[in-house]
Simulated scan of single mutants.
Amino acid sequence: MQRDAVEAAMVGRVVEIATDGRHIALDRGFLTIAERGAEIGRVPIDDITAVVMNAHGLTHTNNVLVALARRGTPVVLCGPHHRPEAIVWPVDGHHEQAGRIMDQAAASLPLKKRLWQQIVQAKILAQGAALAATGAEAGGFRLLARKVSAGDPDNVEAEAARRYWPLLLGSGFRRDTDGGGVNGLLNYGYAVLRAGVARSVMGAGLHPSLGLKHANRGNPMVLVDDLMEPFRPVVDREVHRLVGQGVGEVTGEAKAALARIMIVDLPTAERLSPVATCAERLAGSLARAFAGSGERLALPEPGLPLGF
């Protein structure tokens, strides 16, 4: 297994398979990686948060996918430029899953708009915190967050993005999900984040295809994409740090750093908590909101992330 994949598993419990032609299997509680019939690495399957398959010609056994699904561990299948193309999703993720999905499907549009308002506000405040951490001008982002109303009909989220990217990564940067270079770094970090948030959605018994705002009929993970929005600036800040060190492509060093995203500590109303825990609390609070037990989402505070 490549050094970056081993480090990811040890530090962030995210295992990436990044070399073409490798074979993934299950052996007595371990995920094993083999090349040309010879085992080159193994990781305890209970320690894994997500598996990112990011190479051509990979093969795997059905047993390993079933074992990962039973543990609620998503498997992310990546395409060009490190973009996630699919996530292998467990059928049963929570003991109240059927009831929670029914609540989710029955949620009123006004409720979903109010919940989306909170998510956009949290994202914009997190963008401001990321800018402040890099020494960029961030004062206007609190004002932008206050402008967000239910459902964000004025698309303040897009207005914030137009200001955010040039301040964070330079006036010449353009966000392009099909691009390489710095965009590839962002894609890779978001793939790790998406896998972690997918696990939280599944663990809360929610259905990933019933979103709050995202509504692409070809995207089966719209709720995951909704809930990962407030955490994207954690990835952005790490990419900014990597670029500042001269890393402009998805290298082994960059992968190892971005694999740690889910263990970065964020300030919350209770205490510092890793992104993975914050995502679990957010998904749980959303399930309770759908069930009528309050509308306040458990979102991280707009402070500086710690742990890089």
Rank of each mutant, 00 (worst) to 15 (best):
I263Q: 11
A158V: 14
D176E: 08
G180Y: 12
G284S: 07
G248F: 10
P230K: 04
L223K: 01
R241Y: 01
L131F: 13
I263G: 10
P267W: 15
A133L: 11
F173E: 05
S171Q: 15
L282Q: 05
N216F: 06
W165D: 08
H82K: 02
L258Q: 10
G303L: 12
V43Q: 15
A136D: 10
A145Q: 03
P80S: 15
H214N: 10
N216C: 06
E280R: 03
G292M: 00
D4H: 15
G218V: 07
F290V: 00
R3S: 13
H240A: 14
V197F: 04
L210N: 04
L193D: 08
D265S: 15
A195R: 09
R296K: 09
G292Y: 00
I263S: 13
M221V: 08
V235Q: 07
G211K: 01
I48S: 14
A136V: 08
G41A: 14
Q117V: 00
D178S: 05
C278Q: 08
I87V: 04
H82Q: 04
G170W: 13
G205C: 02
E16N: 01
G151M: 05
G93L: 13
R241S: 14
M1D: 06
L210T: 09
M228A: 00
D265H: 13
D265V: 15
G218D: 06
A130T: 11
A158I: 12
M102Q: 12
N187L: 15
Y164L: 09
H81P: 04
V120L: 09
L111P: 00
S200K: 02
V64A: 05
A34V: 04
A129R: 12
K123M: 11
V234N: 06
W89N: 05
P84Q: 01
A269I: 14
P302W: 07
A298N: 09
A67I: 06
A259T: 13
I261H: 02
E159R: 07
L306W: 09
F308V: 04
M202Q: 07
T134E: 14
G151T: 01
T19C: 12
A257R: 13
G181F: 03
D46M: 15
R175G: 06
M262R: 08
A279I: 00
L68N: 10
L186T: 14
L210M: 03
R288T: 02
D236L: 09
V51F: 10
Q117I: 01
E295L: 05
V250Q: 13
G128D: 11
L167F: 05
R22D: 06
V239Y: 11
R217C: 07
V156T: 05
L68D: 09
D265F: 14
V197Y: 03
A158P: 07
H56A: 13
D27M: 12
Q117F: 00
L258Y: 01
R281H: 05
M1Q: 14
E137W: 07
P233N: 02
R296Q: 11
L258R: 07
V52R: 05
N183D: 11
R174H: 08
E295P: 02
G37S: 03
E96A: 03
L115N: 00
T134V: 11
G29W: 13
T134S: 11
A5W: 15
D92P: 03
V52S: 12
A8N: 15
R71C: 06
R194Y: 00
V234S: 02
V11K: 11
L169D: 06
R199V: 02
